[in-house]
Nucleic acid binder design. Sequence first.
DNA 1: AGACACCCCTGAGAGC
DNA 2: TGCTCTCAGGGGTGTC
Length: 275
Amino acid sequence: MPELPEAETIARGLRRYLVGKKILQITARVPSLRRPLNLIKLRTGAVGKKVVAVNRRGKAIIIELSGKRAILIQLGMTGACKLCPEQEALNKHDHVIFAVSGKLSLRFEDIRRFGMLESFQLDEEASWPEFLKTLGPEPLEKGFSGEYLHTITRKRKTAIKTLLLNQRSVAGIGNIYASELLFRAHIRPGRAAGRLKLAECEKIVEQTRKVLKEAIKAGGTTISDYKGVDGNAGKFDRKLRIYGKAGKACEACGGTIKRIVQTGRATFYCPVCQK
DNA sequence: AGACACCCCTGAGAGC
DNA sequence: TGCTCTCAGGGGTGTC
């Protein structure tokens, strides 16, 4: 499900209600998500601690706690964080429940269980989840520039879309926005990354920023099951120009939108507009 | 090193 | 109605 804009929307929602609250207890209703849940480590790291901040890194949400502890939440394909009154009935796929002061309940719901929850020490990089250590620059920050993209792509034969999906290149771009931003940048997803000119890399960076910012404004994308902390769906799906539109007319040129598969993931593009 | 295929899991929708 | 098949926003692992 969630890419950067969805994670950002969730992080903002959590921040608003969670900062200053105390984690009272953590319970799990399944033994594992993507990996076995280390409930003991989660509890030792978080129970009794106060929420200091809620941040986002790429597609992941980081709940910062007192004592420099933190919880990393990776949403996977179908993960969602919901905040509700503690007495509210549990849903079938509410897998991990955080009891929070003020009679609140933070619930991690995840139909496909591709998500991950990990506890770590913020000021000890050695304790960080591997995923965090290797994550590329934030696409909305200065580190992600045309020059950066140009540099890391030299001699790379990988398709540009595949490279953008790799979280080590840049953090937070997922399958939907990868198609959308390449459409807006007029670049074919199958182009060898190493053959892109500096000006094209700049265009990609510019359109990445634009599309992500627009999506954050709209509260994320809803394909089927994305929800914000309050259960509200995002509205960006109404703004998608290319994703999921195979066989339909390109809004820019009227040409027919194509669907291809790259490393097992669907890609959509306009063969006329994108070179 | 880097580029893939495959796997984890449930549910929705299409087609028969 | 109910079966079977395909597909789905992520990312870790193993193999060539």
